[in-house]
Design a protein around this nucleic acid. Structure first.
Ligand SMILES: [Mn+2]
Ligand SMILES: [Mn+2]
Ligand SMILES: [Mn+2]
Ligand SMILES: [Mn+2]
Lengths: 223, 223
DNA sequence: ATACATATTTAGGCTTGTCTAAAAATATAT
DNA sequence: ATATATTTTTAGACAAGCCTAAATATGTAT
């Protein structure tokens, strides 16, 4: 079995691989794990010896199949627990992450699949992220950052790229939730802020940082 | 915060204190924790320094209020999770213990109380053990080991004093469940086995070891 | 190509929790 | 009361994860 620390590293590498499609750097992992680069190097050596990752000094890291499998299982558990916390225990979407961060490490074959069934086999977690099924399969919706839309384009909010409480609370306060429809009215180059119309009503100005962290998909109902 | 190891030690000491009402010995803890006596000594020193226990070399251990509080909180979580696993996820009573052993260490103030509410504030866990409430209060029913009943006395099974899978599976196979009514028909001194009648029907011979580990309460309906 | 800046690894140490083997204290039997 | 057995503690070591400081490799600008 793997320690929960190893699981967290593999999960971090998995997430980072998805973004920067080449090898993942030591410093990127260190930042994500909120630890020091030297600690990361130690762990990379270990994970490499155990056959979870491909690691060559100074060259970054890629996951081996075995490592990817572990990461996906942990992510599955994380997201299922998030659904549980939201739908059954009335947690809000900014409260669930840190608890799920612990629950994802509980080991019991039966537990995960029973939980999945109990929740009705949900396809996405409360942040809009897809939940892998028992076999590790899940479909990515074609998503794009709000920042990359052009003026006049319409889209639906399907996920967030940042889980911090502050960010999630901010979104709630401006009534921007998963499923909200938005239209880009204007983009301002000097500070990269964007003016949007939400659900055909309110107009809101979003900062560069916010736009970067909102995942949307193009709205099919463009009429 | 306390590590999950510290929590497990405090829980073990709490359980053992309940039985042998004097100080708990190093070896008793070692046996319960499935570890070596020297490891226990190390931990006792630490728990003592932190103010959780009263520890004097060679003299055994008692819990301080602070230690008792921690133990009761962990026990509350353990038993609530056991109820969850049984009633919501269809685990059987022999499968729940080892998973609960992990879940009991999840730290979130909100989680425990939400779970309690979600489950409908259960009073006992699937093994018949009482669940402490938010404030750590719980009532012990007057219980006695089946072994201590006299011939002719009637009782109801309310708990088990041993959580091993083997034992629980054995009880299921002979259809002896929580709430079963039993009457002592005969006691055999040479091997301390006991002949009982279950629910007014089957007659079963129980070994000494089994009788020692069944908690019963006298049946009020004696007519 | 060289010099400087940044990223990464190595060296050495610390904490937690575990172990074995040996020493010391306590309990038991005659 | 003394010898023996058992329990408990101490001493010393190890693995996992983490850290700081120093060494080394890589990237960049001129
Ligand atoms: Mn985690
Ligand atoms: Mn999520
Ligand atoms: Mn435990
Ligand atoms: Mn129980």
């Amino acid at each position: 079995m793997n320690s929960s620390t190893e699981e967290d590293y593999l999960k971090a590498i998995y997430m980072l691989s998805a973004q920067h499609s080449s090898g993942v750097s030591t410093s990127a992992i260190a930042e994500r794990m909120e630890t020091k680069a030297s600690s990361v190097t130690d762990m990379l050596k270990k994970l490499s010896e155990k056959g979870f990752i491909n690691y060559v000094k100074y060259q970054g890291v890629t996951l081996q199949q075995k490592g990817s499998d572990v990461a996906i299982k942990v992510i599955r558990k994380h997201r299922l627990w998030e659904v549980f916390l939201c739908t059954k225990l009335n947690f809000t979407w900014d409260e669930i992450h840190e608890v799920a961060e612990q629950l994802e490490h509980i080991t019991s074959v039966k537990l995960v699949d029973s939980l999945d069934q109990f929740l009705g086999y949900p396809k996405v977690d409360p942040h809009g992220d897809p939940i892998p099924d028992k076999n590790g399969n899940f479909h990515k919706i074609k998503e794009v950052a709000l920042r990359d839309l052009k003026v006049g384009e319409k889209a639906v909010l399907i996920g967030v790229r940042e889980d911090s409480r502050e960010f999630l609370k901010y979104l709630e306060s401006i009534k921007l939730l998963l499923g909200s429809k938005m239209e880009v009215l204007n983009k301002f180059e000097f500070d990269e802020s964007v003016l949007i119309k939400v659900n055909g009503g309110n107009e809101i100005m979003l900062s560069s940082l916010v736009c970067k962290n909102l995942s949307v998909t193009y709205d099919k109902n463009k009429k």
